[in-house]
Amino acid sequence: MDLTLKIWRQANATAKGKFETYTVKNISPDSSFLEMLDILNQQLIEDNIATPVCFDHDCREGICGMCGLYINGRAHGPDKGVTTCQLHMRKFKDGDTIVIEPWRAKPFPIIKDLVVDRTAFDKIIAAGGYVSVNTGGIPDANAIPISKKDADTAMDAAACIGCGACVASCKNASAMLFVAAKVSQFAHLPQGKVEAKERVKNMVSKMDEVGFGNCTNTGACEAECPKEISILHIAKLNREFFAAKIC
């Protein structure tokens, strides 16, 4: 496949960015999207065209959450339920022009080219995304039975990889799906119940503080989430939040 790529280039956080156009040839439909970018970069370096395009990536099997590109106007590109690293070129056609941008959201400032700073997510987890237990001094793992249904729902929420696609897809740059995934995981488990109210209040207020917008129920986050996390968890988050505020 021969492709035209329009890629966002930006030297650093404060520089002005713009789209540059590159072409790649003879790309195998079996190669992954990031392997296609590897080929581009090798070409840019060895043919002295430009400095390579920077993008975040690590595990390349869809679980670390490090990669995240906005491809043709969609977070993680056209395939459903996958991260950018799991997207394969067979989803494109020979001769296509592909537009590649970074996540665009105020709380995710650009570091370089397609790389953004997502430490805002870490700050939200630090504000309360845990059960406050120290190492040791805990009961036997089977001491508290948990219904399979609850454990499964908790796992559905816990599957979040923290990539930020929900924020990038949302017109309000809301992090509600990310926060909801963590709050809902714990809301379905007996562990950490005693601090549930503090948790949800602290996480939501941190989410506001670091600059994420609010949810207006468009559902874009759910549609683009590579782990297909349901917005029902946002409903759970809202319920937990209101309950915590009332009592």
Binding site: V133, T135, I138, A141, D152, M155, L189, Q191, G192
Partner: peptide, 10 residues
Amino acid sequence: DQCVAQGVPF
């Protein structure tokens, strides 16, 4: 035990 106490959904 530790992981269950942390809320790991095994």
